[in-house]
Simulated assay, not measured.
Amino acid sequence: MEFVPETVLKRDIFSETIVGHLAEDPACKVVLRKLDGVPWYARPIAWFLARKEVRGLRAVAGIEGVPELLRVDRVGLLRSWSEGTPLQLAKPDSAAWYHDAKRLLREMRARGVAHNDIAKPQNWLMTPEGRAAVIDFQLASVHPRKGRWFRLLAREDLRHLLKQKRAFAPGLLVPSERRVLAKKSLPSRIWMATGKRAYNFVTRRLMNWSDGEGTEDRIARDGPELRKIAERPEMSDVVLCTYALPARGVGVYAFYETYMAQSELRALVPEARADLVQAVAEFPRDGVEIREDILHLIAANRLDELAVLMAGAPDLQPVVARIVAGRQNLTDRVLRR
């Protein structure tokens, strides 16, 4: 089962996530969580997280909407590709998606598995069929006895799903769900008051790493100055995205809606703030709303997924084609050997 790498999706201090295919079956898309390049000081934690992911994926095998573990070796973990759009881009507003997401959590709970990391919208997907899927089982825990601690964790998984519902479809919340949202479990309150502060200090200050895939730190730090540039009269708007850097971590990709030349724009935007910038004559829009999901896929150079998305929006294809032709990120396909 030989893995052929194609595109780096994410890099952090604990792993490198690469999408590719099997050599014997180019149509079979798979994902490798690569661990053999992890720095020595992060290796114990990286493999601790990897073992949790292996155990979690084995426990949920066969459930629709979760990845299938294919191989584990010294290089890392190979799993099936989960087709879908991350929640922060898909922004599901139909009751059907949330109903299916609850189904997924029920089936995981029946296997004694708590995901423990679905507060992140990027770990939820909306499939092309409108179904729910979940990825990234690094923090998952398996509880064969399904005791009180597991029930608390499973409730937190549900509460975090309802937080996504509150963010993207608040009108669909029912009174019982609002009550669940209003009451954090005791372990959650203790973690927020104590453990999370220490965790954030170690990962973000000492290790310069963010569990939000870099988005929270880079956009929060550099975003205000980049948005201020868009207030110039020759500009209409700006969209900020992140993408995997060839070495490690994430870069900021800034799309500016402007008729300025690309060279003029690059001279205007500090490289310390935005690694890549692109002058775009017209953003793709649904009415007045910018299709940021499209721009995020272009920034990450995930053109195969973009093609699937654009099949449902033929009226936007000419606008998107011009943006793709001028895209600046080709480096995410540079793989570390």
Rank of each mutant, 00 (worst) to 15 (best):
K91L: 13
Y98E: 05
H99S: 15
M126G: 12
P128H: 10
I118W: 00
A95H: 15
A59R: 11
G112T: 08
N116S: 03
E64W: 08
E83V: 08
P86M: 09
N116D: 06
G76Y: 00
V72H: 01
G65A: 11
G62S: 09
P92R: 03
T85S: 01
L70P: 08
W97I: 12
A101C: 11
A90M: 10
L70S: 04
G56T: 01
L69C: 06
D136R: 02
L87R: 00
G62P: 06
R58G: 06
K52Q: 13
L105G: 00
G76K: 00
L78Y: 04
V134I: 11
S80T: 05
E129S: 15
L78R: 01
S80R: 01
Q122H: 08
L87F: 01
L89S: 07
W81K: 02
Q138E: 14
Q122S: 10
S82Q: 14
A132I: 01
T127A: 15
D93K: 09
P128M: 12
E53C: 06
M126R: 14
H99P: 10
R79T: 09
A114N: 04
S80H: 02
L70C: 08
Q88P: 08
L57M: 15
L78T: 03
F137M: 07
L77C: 07
K52L: 14
R58T: 05
A96S: 13
K91C: 10
S94L: 10
A114L: 03
R111N: 08
S80G: 09
S80I: 04
E107G: 07
E64I: 11
G76P: 00
G84W: 00
E64L: 14
S80Y: 03
R74S: 09
K102R: 15
L139F: 12
V54M: 11
V113W: 03
E107M: 10
L69Y: 01
P67D: 02
E83F: 12
I118E: 00
Q138K: 06
S80P: 05
E129G: 13
L104I: 08
